[in-house]
Design a protein around this nucleic acid. Structure first.
Lengths: 143, 143
DNA sequence: ATTTTTAGTTTACAACCGTAAACAGTAAAA
DNA sequence: TTTTACTGTTTACGGTTGTAAACTAAAAAT
């Protein structure tokens, strides 16, 4: 099967996707209302973003009387995972651990999230190396 | 004192910054050589990026004979933390935990990184709520 | 049947990005 | 000293992004 072609979602487009994922489906008037409140965007802006997301293939529109109803065509969690993986790919490997630690301190996590993370870390520890090398400069293995 | 004004570093610029952070200082010819190998960029491309980073205030250049030597003017870890925080700010709060778990499974972590993360999680657990609410649609507290 | 509202499509437009060639000035080599 | 090489500065150029107005077609209200 064909792996889903990489869709680039911009910052503003993310906001639209979030709402779509949460609601499952939306009309543009609904979206316009939500984005007016949440982001202070004009209706025209929302229309543009919906159009771009359709063109990118992240949303699908189904005619519903006069208007369309919009549905996501990509899943939320994989999209998020991918965005995050891309960003971490730009970071020095050696610093990923510290960055994650700083992040954990900053975000909201539920008890269950924490347990899950602890489990993932425990498993990771089984095979983790003593040291991760810097990968910022080719040929150089250690900072 | 003046909080450092937010500097936006693009994907390509990140690559340049990484090298600069790792080496502490670089000449443009050094950078050109490294980026040719690491990214396949032409010298001209590197010059452009160095110039843009100077203009953005992420690098500083000090005249050194014929050429300049470039130094970072922002620190690595805070820059990374900020970029990551910004991205996570675009994500549904409810999904942050899962996203972190997926990420932990994917990245390289040293034993020390893991211990540090476990400590951060243990502390977090002391005050973590049972459940994190979705913040994708205003007024709606739960998905 | 007109007028008004609504919703999708086109066009706008400046800033930013990736990628790089062209140009200019100065130092080094011949 | 004339030529060459290096290095920083300008210009280029199409694509993306944020932000939105203008235009158009169809439905709803009068």
């Amino acid at each position: 099967m064909e792996a889903q072609t990489q869709i680039e979602i911009s910052d503003a487009e993310w906001e639209v996707m979030r709402v779509t994922w949460t609601l499952g489906s939306v009309t543009s008037s609904q979206m316009a209302e939500i984005m007016a409140e949440k982001m202070g965007w004009k209706t025209a802006t929302v229309k543009t973003l919906l159009g771009r997301l359709i063109k990118k293939g992240a949303l699908r529109a189904e005619k519903n009387g006069r208007a369309f109803t919009y549905y996501p065509t990509v899943d939320e969690q994989p999209s998020m995972d991918e965005a995050v993986t891309t960003l971490f790919g730009h970071l020095c490997q050696m610093r990923v651990g510290q960055t994650l630690t700083d992040l954990v301190a900053k975000v909201q996590l539920s008890q269950k999230d924490i347990q899950q993370l602890q489990a993932a870390l425990a498993k990771k520890a089984e095979t983790a190396p003593e040291m991760v090398d810097c990968d910022c400069v080719p040929g150089q293995t250690k900072c």
